Amino acid sequence: MTTNHAPPGAERTAVVTGGSRGIGRAVAHRLARADLAVVVNYASDADAAEETVAAITAAGGRSTGVRADVADEHAVAALFDRAEQEFGGVDVVVNCAGRLALSPIADLDLAVLDAVHRTNIRGTFVVAQQAARRLRAGGSFVGFSTSVVGTQFPAYGAYAASKGAVEALTLILARELRGRDITVNTVAPGPTATDLFLDGKTPEQIDRLAKAPPLERLGTPEDIAEVVAFLTGPEGRWVNGQVLRANGGMV
């Protein structure tokens, strides 16, 4: 496959899935501050996406919001088409879109399992597939896993299993893109203060998880966005085919 290069001096463009809220929103803002045009993908919350886009443009950046279910290959192809049509190409893809369900394995409704895996595994695969076809030379793909793959907390069986698959497929993609000057890495956050993480947890549970890392605090979406900015920027070009556990030192 031939890889296009961005014209000299051309604006770089990022596609951020799940970019309307939480870590995805922080990533979108951080990449915009690094002078990338940002395509903010969202699944259903158009208002949140519009807020993200408006904040980026108000700060002098370029951005647009595009609705797409990451597990729908036609919708994702249209998302990348829009990025190319509006901004000239795609240089960075960050797949923040994800779904979380907590339950003991013995009790989990298999329909919930299917929904988690549809977004987290199929969705990652579909987005990675388009990234492999569209990214220009010098580009980067960043997938999202979780440190629970290593910590193995109870009730996270479906979620951790799906993210283990994300790690495997993204690291294989790094090797499949040999010779194209494209980096592929996965970020695996620890407990991070997002709505997705905080929902349904008691203050005691949150406090216990905050004390788990040696730094004794929850991560912030901005902490994770800085890691993504490093991996997709010039300073991170020698990091490829890795899982980076951004979790404050949790085992």
Rank of each mutant, 00 (worst) to 15 (best):
S162W: 01
A131S: 14
I121Q: 10
F153T: 08
T146K: 07
T124V: 13
V148T: 09
A128F: 07
H117D: 12
A160K: 00
A111E: 15
F125L: 14
A158Q: 04
G123H: 01
A158T: 01
Y159N: 03
S145N: 06
L110N: 11
V149N: 02
A115S: 15
A161Y: 09
A128G: 13
T119W: 00
V148N: 07
A155D: 08
F153M: 06
V127I: 11
R134T: 15
R122Q: 13
F153P: 02
S147R: 06
V148S: 06
F141E: 09
G138Y: 02
T124L: 11
R122P: 06
A155G: 01
G143L: 03
G123Q: 02
A160H: 05
S147P: 01
T146E: 01
A111W: 11
V112A: 14
V116F: 03
L110T: 12
A115W: 05
G138V: 00
A160T: 00
G138R: 04
V148M: 03
A161H: 04
V116E: 03
G150R: 15
V148D: 03
A160E: 01
R118F: 11
T119G: 09
L135R: 08
V149T: 15
I121R: 08
F141V: 10
S147W: 01
A155P: 00
Y156N: 05
R136H: 05
I121W: 05
I121A: 11
Q152Y: 05
V116P: 02
G139P: 00
S145F: 03
Q129W: 09
L135T: 15
R133A: 15
A131F: 14
A131M: 12
